[in-house]
Simulated assay, not measured.
Amino acid sequence: MYAFFARWRDAGLVAELHDRLRGAVRDAAGRDQEPSAAVIDSQSVKADATVALAARGFDAGKKINGRKRHLLTDTLGLLLAVLVTPASTTDRDAARLLLTAARDRFERLTRVWADGGYTGHLIDWSAAQLGVVLDIVRRNDDISGFQVLPRRWVVERSFAWCLRSRRMVRDYERRTDTSEAVICWSMTVPMSRRLAGQRQQRRAPAAGEAA
C-alpha cells in the first residue's frame, strides 16, 4: 500500500488529486478556482524516531523537538501550499519559500493574513518582490485567555482538519516531501465529504414530494 502511495507522490498525483478537489469545492461555493487572498500559519509537531536528526529541529517557543508544518490556505480553509521543515525553522524564513511558490501558481493572489510571527522585513519583502500585501492580525493584549481572531481562525481550523487523521498527530516520515504529500492526502477527506454532502442535498426530495 505504501509503495502505491509513493508512486503517486513521486508522480505528483497526490497533489493533482488534491488541487482538482479544491477547485471543485471552490466552484461549488461560487468562488473562482484561483484565490486572491490567503491565510498563512505554522504548526510544530513532535517527530517519531524514524525521522533523522538532520531532518528535525527544536522549536524553543513551543518546546517541541520535531518538524514544523507551514500551511497557506484560502479563505475557506482549503490548502493552497504546504512546506514541512525542521521545527527550528522560523516562520519568516519558511514564508519566503511558501509565498514565492504560491505566487508562481496563483497569479491572482495579492493578500495574505498572518500572525505576529511574520512581522518585520517579510512584510516589505513580500510587497516588493511578490506584490503581495502581508496583513498582520494581532492579538488584543487587553483580553486574556482564548480569542477567535479574524481570518487567523481559518487556518487554525485547517490544522484541526489535518489532525483528525491519526498519522498527522506527529511526523513519522523520513522525507519531508512525504510529509507534505500526507498533509495533502488528509485534506482530501474534508473536501470529499463537503462535495458529497452538497450532492446529497441537491438530490434530496423537496417537502411534499415523493421520496
Score class of each variant (00 low, 15 high):
G57C: 04
A181H: 06
S144P: 02
A52K: 08
E156V: 14
T85H: 04
A210D: 11
D27S: 12
R170D: 11
D41H: 06
L72A: 02
F106W: 14
L79M: 13
N140R: 13
L122Y: 01
R175I: 04
D27W: 12
L78F: 13
A47I: 03
V39K: 03
N65H: 09
K68Y: 04
S158I: 00
G120I: 03
R203M: 14
V137I: 15
R7E: 15
V82P: 00
A15L: 12
K63T: 02
Q129S: 13
I136G: 01
N140Y: 05
A206Q: 11
V137L: 11
D104A: 12
R69Q: 08
Q43T: 10
L80K: 00
V82W: 01
V82H: 01
G197L: 01
V25A: 15
D91M: 05
S88W: 05
D48V: 02
V82K: 00
L109S: 00
A102K: 00
E16C: 12
V84L: 07
F106G: 06
S88M: 05
A28I: 13
K46C: 11
V169R: 11
F5M: 13
G120V: 05
P190S: 06
L17T: 14
A11S: 15
R157W: 07
M168N: 00
D93H: 06
A181T: 07
L109K: 00
R139C: 13
A11M: 13
S88D: 07
E156N: 09
H18M: 15
D135E: 14
L149R: 11
R108F: 00
D135L: 02
R157A: 08
S186R: 07
E107D: 09
D171C: 08
D41S: 06
A114D: 10
W161K: 09
D27C: 11
R164V: 10
M1C: 10
S36T: 11
V169K: 07
A206F: 03
V51P: 01
L130Q: 09
A24I: 05
R111K: 14
D104G: 09
A81N: 12
V182E: 10
M187D: 01
A24L: 15
G116R: 11
D59I: 04
Q129I: 06
M168F: 03
V45P: 02
F5K: 11
G116A: 12
R194C: 12
I136H: 02
T176D: 14
L71K: 00
D48W: 05
G30C: 12
R138I: 10
R167E: 08
A60F: 04
N65Y: 06
T50D: 14
G131F: 05
R138E: 15
